[in-house]
Structures are given as structure tokens and as C-alpha cells.
Write a protein that binds this DNA or RNA. Structure first.
Length: 559
RNA sequence: UGGGGCGUCGUCAAGCGGUAAGACACAGGUCUUUGGAACCUGCAUUCGGAGGUUCGAAUCCUCCCGCCCCAGCCA
């Protein structure tokens, strides 16, 4: 799976733990909170969590960290499972919920209270914050810090009994208000939240905080390695503290750097803003880095997994270039995607010396990279559509496509030469090209004869099928969307261009999700809204375009 | 000027005291019925900086600089 490099630091740590007998079996977990959709950053975490388990012959649990009912919803749970499965990972029968452990957590909380290690605090949220101190000043103990165990027990039970209003009291661990690590300044374990939970209903009036809950969840499941992102590094002492006080199974937490990608955002908060603010069409908008979006865009699970593999695992903050993700998709689709010709921006071509009404069929490779894919038949006739970009009335240097007097090859068909350019007499707009074909070049080849530099794709006008093409560009105009004011101000207004053109006959019934290479254009997948007669294709990624590069260079020089 | 992390090519990232892997990107070339793909070549005398230890340092020590995270009853 990994390139031929050494093990990453997590693999090394796991190896060492196994060698030293700290753990006998590797059990990891992927613990999403069901309050949003998974994105490619989660894909990295999933690949690491499941990947480490698989590599060491262990298992990985899927566990919903559903400790905050004010934000979590069942439909997110469904979508997340769907996404993880789609990515290609299997949690077997090990689907767990933090909420399933609420009873045990409660009992453990009682234990801590009895041990004098937790207390009920009546301070307001503001008071707690003020007394927490600052980065440089120690906190001050709560006036309720030294309540008797009996009183704490009584109050805590009444918190859960629903006797107190939301936010009026919390249970706190009694650790150290002067700790330089703020997480250790008597962290909150439980808050009162008289909110129904999507799984436990009205059973609980109090809900555990992440730090208290997470280690317990890991412990209950016998997790060996609890892998998470860097921002939890500061929480590890607390994770360890709870487990140590309780004297229960103690997994090892290891932190790695989360993924960042250029020209997009990977934060649930911002993603939610984009979706709910209507800046995109939904969680599966193909411009989004969500798994649902990438899937609809035409990305394959294998390409995403490969990407996650190549970016590596480290603790250094990193922002990965988009080009790598695109490369992974192209690499896979080049080998697997059937070829077809589609004209995105049509320009009419009439072959003046081709008999009217005549139709020929040419044979074309379905995939030149994979001969076993076979051949397909393409109809050819007197009137064709070619790409507007494949003609220039006044061709620049190095442009070797069609222009007046010039000859090019129509792929799989004939050489043609442009003789006449028809324009709208009023607007001067290009209407059609009159060309002559060379009957000697049938199949697109003149054995032993003159060669031609350019090859164009085309479709036969009477046979072509109208279709919609959605061309996507990066969602933001800046590599770092947070640059400047607000990330929303860096949205790319041109991130979606929808155009109408023609597809080869035979594609008009392609099922949603099918992926194709439109020759010389890029990889496209059939959008779920497609219907026979109203096909819509999403451009997953363009082919590399050397000519565009040459032109850009030239323009930059002149401009 | 509290604590926790991180700094190796444009971007990721190996390297674990023996003299800077690989990938993407980029540049040039071969080939080509996709200006695609494939293939070949090039691309860090240098590892945030300065000292030190050593025969030898990206790797060890010291100091300095820069960047990220933490003051939710979010996760």
C-alpha cells in the first residue's frame, strides 16, 4: 500500500508497542461526530485508522461520538456509514455509539466523586471562564471545589434527575487549577442538557464532555491505539489522567497532522456555511471536498485512497497541492475509463465532397490503454460537429489544429482540409466550416503518405445527442481561502460552468455514476440527475493540456 | 515573557551519526490516429539560523528565529 519508504511514526509506535508487549492486539477506531458530512480530511483519518489496523492484523471500529445531542442528527449517521463503506472500508459488526456507554460513564463519574476527584460546580459559565485564568496566569479554585462527597453525589444525581435547569451546574474533575496546560484546570465532565438524544431519547439530562467520554469509549472497546489529529495533543494528559484514576484499560493516543488542501476548506463549520448559505447546491455538490461531493464529481474510492497514501503521515502542518489529488484520479481513470468523443462547444463542419445521405461506420478503441476493453462503432456523415477550440481562423504559431487551408485528422475517420469559413453577415460570428475530406485517408490514416499534425475529435451531427456538461473549477480563488477577510469573499464565482454540446450516440442511456474519458478533453461522469434524453455530465478532471500551457505562456509574455 | 507541537526541493515526504529516497509539480526530449498516456533526462553541495561535540552531523548538545494549537458547559 505505502510507497517503498520507511514506516511512518505511527507504524513505528505500533510496532514498538507490539514488540514490547504493551498491547497484544491492534484495535483502532474511527470516531466521527454525526454533526456533518465526511470530507477528504476524514478520508485521511479513515485510511490511517483502518490502515493501521489492517496492517497489523487488527480491527478498526466505527464509533459515533454522539455526546452532544444539540448538534447531532441521524441522517448524518447514515451518510457517514455510506461514505466509509463507499471509500472501501469495513467495520464488520463493530458499529458502536458513545451513547451506548452513557450508563458506564455515569457509574465511573460516581466513582471519581467518591474518590474525591470530581465535584459539582454551581458557577455560571462566565464565572468558570473567569476563574480558569489565562495562558500566563493560574486559575482560581471554584468556591464549590471542596464540597463534601455526599453533597457532590446528591447534586450529581439530581442533575441527572432533571432537577436543575440547563447550564446551572456541571460536574468537574478536581485536578489542578494552576496547571500550565489549561485542559487540566478542573475540566468539565458533564453538563446539563435537557435535550432529547437521537438514540437515547429523554433518558439523559446530562451529557458527557469529549475529554471525559472519549477515553472511556476507547477503553470500553479495548482500543490499543487511539489515533487523532494534532489539536488533541494538549488533551492527552487529561485522556491519560481519567484512565489512570479509574484504573481501566488504557489505550495509547497518538496524534497526526490533519490534511489541508489548497483552494478549498476542510472544516465542518465552513462546509456547513457553504451548504446552508446556498453557496453550493448541497453536501454532494461536486465542487465540495466532501466524500459525497467527490463521489458525485466522479472521483473513485481507489483514487482517494491512493491520494491518502501518497500524502503520507506526519506531524508537520501541511497544505497539499490540488494537483496531486487530480493526478491520482487521472492515473486510475486513464487505465479504466472507456473513451468516447464528445464535443463540448460545437462548431459545424460540412464536408462538401462527401455524398449527402451517406453514413459510414468507423471502429474505435474503447480504451487504447486496455485492448481487452474492445472496440466500438462510430457513425460518420457529411455534417459533423467539432470543437470550437480546434479551429482558428488566424492560427498562432505552434497551433496545429484546423484553420483555413490546413489539413487535420478527424480521429478514426478522415483527413479534412478547411476551404471556407461561413460567418453570420451581421454579427461576423462563425457559423460553420466548409471542408473537403480525402477518401484515401479512410480510418484516419494515409499509408506511406503525408502526415498531419493535428487530430480532432468529432461527432456526426445527425447522430449526435445533445447533452449538458458541467465544467468545474476550484471553489476558491486563493490557495488559502482564509487569506484576507472572510473565506466566503474568496469564493470563485466561476467555479461552475454549464454548457450544452453533443455526445457520441450510444451514451444517451449511460447510467448515473459511469465514468468516461471524453477524448482530448477529460474525464466525465454521469450525474445522478441525468435521464435519457437529458444527459448531464460532470467533468471530474480535465486531461493535461499542453497547448493551453503554451498559449498561457505566450499570453503572459505579451500581456 | 504559560503549556504543547512543528520547521529537509515549488508542494507532500524519507532520513534515526557515515556523507540528502520517492511522489506530485516544473523543464527538456523520445514516441504517439488523444498537444492525453507511456518512456528518458534534468531538478536540495544542502537540511530555519548561529555556535559546539565528532574523523564525520539533517541526524547529538546549546542558544536564537519562524509557524501552528490551547483560555467551549464543541469535538
Amino acid at each position: 500500500m505505502t510507497e517503498a519508504t520507511g514506516a511512518n511514526f505511527i507504524q513505528e509506535a505500533v510496532q514498538e508497542d507490539l514488540a514490547k508487549g504493551r498491547f497484544s492486539k491492534v484495535i483502532t477506531r474511527f470516531p466521527p461526530e454525526p454533526n456533518g458530512y465526511l470530507h477528504i480530511g476524514h478520508a485521511k483519518a479513515i485510511c490511517i485508522d483502518f490502515g493501521i489496523a489492517e496492517e497489523f492484523g487488527g480491527v478498526c471500529n466505527l464509533r459515533f461520538d454522539d455526546t452532544n445531542p444539540t448538534k447531532e442528527e441521524q441522517h448524518y449517521i447514515d451518510a457517514i456509514q455510506d461514505n466509509v463503506r463507499w471509500l472501501g472500508f469495513d467495520w464488520g459488526d463493530r458499529l458502536y455509539y458513545a451513547s451506548d456507554y452513557f450508563d458506564r460513564m455515569y457509574a465511573w463519574a460516581i466513582q471519581l466523586i467518591k474518590d474525591g476527584k470530581a465535584y459539582v460546580d454551581d458557577q455560571t459559565p462566565d464565572e468558570i471562564r473567569e476563574n480558569r485564568g489565562t495562558l500566563t496566569e493560574p486559575g482560581r479554585p471554584s468556591p464549590y471545589r471542596d464540597r463534601s462527597i455526599e453533597e457532590n453525589l446528591d447534586l450529581f444525581e439530581r442533575m441527572q434527575a432533571g432537577e436543575f435547569p440547563d447550564g446551572s451546574r456541571v460536574l468537574r474533575a478536581k485536578i489542578d487549577m494552576a496547571a500550565p496546560n489549561l485542559n487540566l484546570r478542573d475540566p468539565v465532565m458533564y453538563r446539563i442538557l435537557a435535550v432529547p438524544h437521537h438514540r437515547t431519547g429523554n433518558r439523559w439530562k446530562i451529557y458527557p464532555m469529549y475529554d471525559w467520554a472519549h477515553g472511556l469509549e476507547d477503553s470500553v472497546e479495548g482500543i490499543s491505539h487511539s489515533l487523532c489529529s494534532l489539536e488533541f495533543e494538549d488533551h492527552r494528559p487529561l485522556y491519560d489522567w481519567y484512565l489512570e484514576q479509574l484504573g481501566i484499560h488504557h489505550p495509547r493516543q497518538i496524534e497526526f497532522a490533519r490534511l489541508e488542501l489548497e483552494y478549498t476548506v476542510l472544516s465542518k463549520r465552513k462546509l456547513i456555511q457553504l451548504v446552508e448559505g446556498g453557496y453550493v447546491t448541497g453536501w454532494d455538490d461536486p465542487r465540495l471536498p466532501t466524500l459525497a461531493g467527490l463521489r458525485r464529481r466522479g472521483y473513485t474510492p481507489a483514487a482517494i485512497r491512493n491520494f491518502c497514501d501518497r500524502i503520507g503521515v506526519s506531524k508537520a502542518h501541511s497544505v497539499v497541492e490540488f494537483a496531486l489529488l487530480e493526478h491520482c484520479l487521472r492515473e486510475e481513470l486513464n487505465k479504466s475509463a472507456p473513451r468516447t468523443m464528445a464535443v463540448l462547444r460545437p462548431l459545424k463542419v460540412v464536408l462538401t465532397n462527401y455524398p449527402e445521405g451517406k453514413v459510414e461506420e468507423f471502429e474505435a478503441d474503447i480504451n487504447p490503454e486496455d485492448p481487452s476493453a474492445g472496440k466500438r462503432k462510430i457513425p460518420f456523415s457529411r455534417e459533423l460537429w467539432i470543437e470550437q477550440d480546434d479551429f482558428r481562423e488566424d492560427p498562432p504559431k505552434k497551433f496545429f489544429r484546423l484553420s483555413p487551408g490546413r489539413e487535420v485528422r478527424l480521429k478514426y475517420a478522415y483527413y479534412i482540409t478547411c476551404n471556407e469559413v461561413i460567418k453570420d453577415p451581421d454579427t461576423g460570428d462563425l457559423i460553420e466550416l466548409r471542408c473537403k475530406y480525402d477518401p484515401e485517408t479512410r480510418g484516419g490514416w494515409l499509408p506511406g503518405g503525408r502526415k498531419v499534425k493535428g487530430t480532432s475529435h468529432w461527432v456526426s451531427a445527425p447522430h449526435a445527442v445533445r447533452a449538458e456538461f458541467r465544467l468545474y473549477d476550484r471553489l476558491f480563488t486563493k490557495p488559502n481561502p482564509d487569506e484576507g477577510k472572510q473565506f466566503l469573499s474568496n469564493l470563485n464565482a466561476q467555479s461552475l460552468e454549464s454548457i450544452s454540446g453533443f455526445i457520441e450516440a450510444g451514451l444517451e442511456n449511460a447510467p448515473a455514476g459511469n465514468r468516461y474519458q471524453f477524448e482530448r478533453q477529460g474525464y466525465f461522469s454521469v450525474d445522478p440527475v441525468s435521464k435519457p434524453g437529458a444527459m448531464a455530465f460532470n467533468r471530474s478532471v480535465s486531461l493535461k493540456d499542453t497547448w493551453a500551457k503554451i498559449e498561457n505562456k505566450k499570453n503572459n509574455k505579451n500581456g
